[in-house]
Structures are given as structure tokens and as C-alpha cells.
């Protein structure tokens, strides 16, 4: 009986593995086809090679830029701006949410301002930010942070308010102060929400940073794109896009695994 169950289980696992292999091979084939047809269609002029370039040329350019180290410089500038921006946005948003939770009066006063700020397309503030912070890295980081700070504030503040009243009651019957309520019930109950905003904020910070670089930068991947566009060098635009796609995905995956680690830590407290 037992061996029968074991064979059934190993068969089940085998079909699972097979299924997974099939999905992955299809994904790889699709990627290969995409690049292959891009190359092919550009060569036979179905796509305008001047605009869309082709993978082999993009690859050559990338190899050259890697070799002379410029790609690394540009990528690391953009990457660090993005990381700082999204950390500032998440931490700042959480801090503001905490202040709003602390003072119901202030939260009532600020409510319409938050609604306006949230509905407003933040990139429209770009010129103001550049004037305020100067044409440099500070402005770009500010753009990255600004995009995520308002939504973080709203989401986290809502989470703070929706913590089950009874958890607060447990602490209140022991005579807890407001600070203790926040420290022992409100904040830990909302860690999952805060961590999940990290994932959203990574994407938003990329948008802010790239737009910021479009506007002022002399370095970075956003700068490479806008420069390539202006001098009609679309190889460079394509290359930057590919690098951004790779970096953004890697970063998202890193945040995702960080989320898993943190969630485990929280439940193991």
C-alpha cells in the first residue's frame, strides 16, 4: 500500500517537473524567436534598421560600452538613484503615515491635500523639482522618491487605521500608552503592507528616475536614451532599454526575495 502511494507521488512529481520544463523551454524559444526575427526583419528591411536597429549591432555596442566601462558607470548611477529614491519614498511615506495616525486632527486637515497630490501626475512637477534641488542627482532622486511617497503614505496610513480594534483593546486594558500601541500593535500588524509597498515603489522609482534623467542628467541610462534619441542613434536607445529591463527585473526579484525573508523574520520575531 505504502509503496503504491510512493510511486503515485513520484509519478505526480515527475509530471510536475515535466510541465515546468515545458513552460521554461517555451519561454526560452519565444525569447530566441523574438530576437531572431528582429535581426532578420531588420536585415531584410521589413523593419527600418535606422530606427529599430538590430540585436547584433546592439550587442556590439553593448560590448564596446562594457569594455570601455561607460555602461557600468551609467547603469550604476541610475541604479543607485533608483535604490535611494525608493527607500526614501517608502520610509518617508511610512513616517508620514505614522504622523497622520498619531494626530487624527492633522490627518483630517491634510486629507484633501493628499487626495490632490495623489491624483496629480507627479512627473509634471519635474521642472519645479529641478529648480528647487538644482540640476543634478538630488533632483533625480527626489523625482524617484516623490512618485512613491504619496501612494505609500495613503496605503500605509489606511493599513494603520484598519488594524483590528481588539488588538488595541488588549493593550489598552493593560494601560498601554499611544507610543506602546503603535510599537507593539499597529506597526508590526502593518509590516506585511509596508513590505508589499516596497515592490510597487521599486517600479515607481524607476519611472521617476528615468524621467528625471530625461530632464537633467549628464549620466545614467535615462540620459543615454534621451541622448541616443536626440542624435538619432537608436542602437543606444535599444541597448539602454534592454539594460533597464534586465536591471529592473533583477531588482524586483531581489525585493521579492527580501520580502520573503522579512516575512519569515516577522513571523519568527
Amino acid at each position: 500500500m505504502k509503496t503504491k502511494i510512493q510511486t503515485l507521488h513520484s509519478q505526480y512529481l515527475q509530471t510536475k517537473r515535466k510541465d515546468k520544463r515545458r513552460v521554461i523551454s517555451c519561454q526560452l524559444i519565444l525569447l530566441g524567436l523574438l530576437f531572431l526575427s528582429w535581426e532578420l526583419f531588420s536585415r531584410i528591411q521589413w523593419l527600418d534598421p535606422l530606427i529599430f536597429s538590430m540585436p547584433s549591432k546592439v550587442w556590439n555596442l553593448m560590448a564596446a560600452k562594457i569594455a570601455d566601462g561607460t555602461l557600468f558607470t551609467h547603469a550604476s548611477v541610475t541604479l543607485s538613484e533608483t535604490i535611494i529614491g525608493f527607500i526614501l519614498g517608502t520610509a518617508g511615506g511610512t513616517l508620514i503615515a505614522a504622523i497622520l495616525w498619531w494626530s487624527p486632527f492633522l490627518s483630517k486637515v491634510l486629507d484633501p491635500y493628499l487626495v490632490v497630490l495623489n491624483s496629480m501626475p507627479k512627473v509634471a512637477l519635474g521642472p519645479i523639482i529641478i529648480v528647487a534641488f538644482g540640476p543634478g542627482m538630488t533632483s533625480i532622486i527626489a523625482m524617484g522618491a516623490l512618485l512613491s511617497i504619496v501612494i505609500t503614505t495613503l496605503v500605509v496610513y489606511n493599513a494603520f487605521r484598519q488594524v483590528d480594534e481588539n488588538y488595541k483593546k488588549v493593550l489598552l486594558t493593560f494601560g498601554a500608552s499611544k507610543r506602546q500601541l503603535f510599537h507593539y500593535a499597529i506597526l508590526p500588524a502593518c509590516y506585511p503592507t509596508i513590505i508589499s509597498t516596497l515592490k510597487v515603489n521599486v517600479g515607481l522609482a524607476w519611472v521617476g528616475v528615468i524621467v528625471g534623467e530625461f530632464l537633467v542628467a549628464k549620466q545614467g541610462l535615462g540620459y543615454l536614451i534621451i541622448y541616443g534619441f536626440q542624435v538619432f542613434q537608436f542602437q543606444q536607445v535599444m541597448m539602454s532599454l534592454i539594460v533597464i529591463a534586465i536591471l529592473a527585473t533583477v531588482m524586483y526579484k531581489m525585493i521579492e526575495s527580501l520580502e520573503k525573508i522579512l516575512m519569515k523574520r516577522i513571523s519568527k520575531y
Binding site: 488588538y167 488588549v170 494601560g175 508590526p188 513571523s267 520575531y269
Partner: peptide, 15 residues
């Protein structure tokens, strides 16, 4: 601290 209060459910902090 002289009074203790017990609710309908345990409300133990899950974390």
C-alpha cells in the same frame, strides 16, 4: 494593572 480583561476571542498577536 489591577484589572485584567479577557475578550471574546484570544487576540494573541500572530507575529
Amino acid at each position: 494593572e489591577k484589572t485584567g480583561y479577557m475578550l471574546q476571542e484570544d487576540y494573541l498577536f500572530p507575529w
